[in-house]
Write a protein that binds this DNA or RNA. Structure first.
Lengths: 212, 212
DNA sequence: CTATTTATGTACCTTACGGTATAGTACAGA
DNA sequence: TCTGTACTATACCGTAAGGTACATAAATAG
């Protein structure tokens, strides 16, 4: 829980923070998630976190850095969750876990559709902000690679045909993932998203020569 | 070119507009496209169109209505272009035309990646604006239907197997479409987008039992 | 206890925002 | 030509934006 930048420094010098950085970042992320980057004001963030603006500025820099911190936080979370899903031995249980988690996340806490934080708050800024653009590309590449690896593992484990194309299979899942994100934010219902995910998994099953 | 609200009214009463509404809407759309809805100011729009703000307000209402007009404009354009692409007799030429047009659009005028106008400017607002959310859903549904119809037509024409599933095929193309949009805005290159589209079309070929 | 360091809370600054009042202008109709 | 009407241009309004100065509070180091 407690994080230290270097080894075992007893305690930082001055007055300690009255808040937990990760918790604050979660609130910040949720606010940006709803209203977008440009659509969120520092006053809103202040209200959402319960912190006064000088505390936010002191801890994170400016609005953009605060957003980038929230984005990193989100992306690290996604990577961790997907790594967990992909660690499930059975391929199709893996894919089910992945899509279940996505749909849960994309539906949002109170079942209003919110979609993927990155897709709908970072992308609008990506065309004018190279750092955000790069973060998005890295995240997309990372998901690509993780999925390809997962399919390769399934081939090695003999779960699917050795003739299956991991890249084609990954493409289907990735495209489906981003589509579900968009549909979620557009207000499609959870069963509709579930059906979409299931159809993609069914397609993967056919493509990979797995037993029906 | 000229549009009249009712039958053949000769000319509106007062001083005529000094600008072409569609042309202005194009500039407006391009500006929103780059900076997003919330990230675009009325002053930017005024500068981009060469119109003073009162003219914009007089012609379109407020910022939101101006955006909605630009969105409608864009969506109508997309529908028209896709209808044209789908009118091409050969299925795979149709799909190639569709993806070519998408990639051209999504790369933007000066080859900076911009992605789909709707996906990256409407979606962030969709979670708080029911009208925008509805427009997005309608547009997605419309593309779904158009693609399903296109595949049904190909089955009727004997271009692909009668056992092919139009819904599954449409899903592949739609998901690919949205993915390309995201990748474009994230800065992926034109060849990368092209490769992605080609892979989807190749998958459709396999799935539809068409001759290799 | 004192000095130093860092966070908090209030109040505020500057700028940019969405939107408009108003005076002038170009057209149609009478 | 006169009148009504709709658009243009300038200048402006109130507010909300991102960000900060400053006094105060809570911790450590000596």
């Amino acid at each position: 829980m407690v994080q230290k930048t270097s080894a075992a420094r007893s305690a930082p010098r001055g007055r300690p923070r009255s808040f937990d950085t990760d918790e604050v970042l979660d609130r910040v992320r949720d606010t940006f998630w709803r209203y977008g980057y440009a659509g969120t004001s520092m006053d809103q963030l202040s209200a959402a976190t319960g912190l006064h603006k000088p505390s936010l500025y002191g801890a994170f820099g400016d609005k953009r850095k605060l957003y980038l911190a929230a984005l990193d936080n989100y992306l690290a979370d996604v990577r961790a969750e997907f790594a967990e899903a992909f660690a499930v031995p059975d391929l199709f249980e893996s894919l089910a876990a992945m899509t279940e988690w996505s749909i849960d996340k994309f539906m949002g806490k109170d079942e209003t559709g919110t979609g993927c934080f990155m897709m709908h708050t970072a992308m609008p800024e990506a065309s004018e902000d190279p750092e955000i653009s790069r973060a998005v590309r890295e995240s997309m590449d990372s998901l690509d690679r993780a999925l390809v690896r997962r399919f390769e593992k399934a081939i090695e484990a003999g779960q699917i045909s050795a003739a299956a194309d991991p890249h084609a299979l990954a493409m289907v899942m990735v495209a489906n993932h981003y589509e579900i994100s968009g549909r979620a934010r557009a207000g499609y219902s959870r069963p509709e998203l579930r059906a979409l995910a299931d159809r993609a998994i069914a397609l993967v099953k056919v493509m990979s020569g797995a037993p029906a």
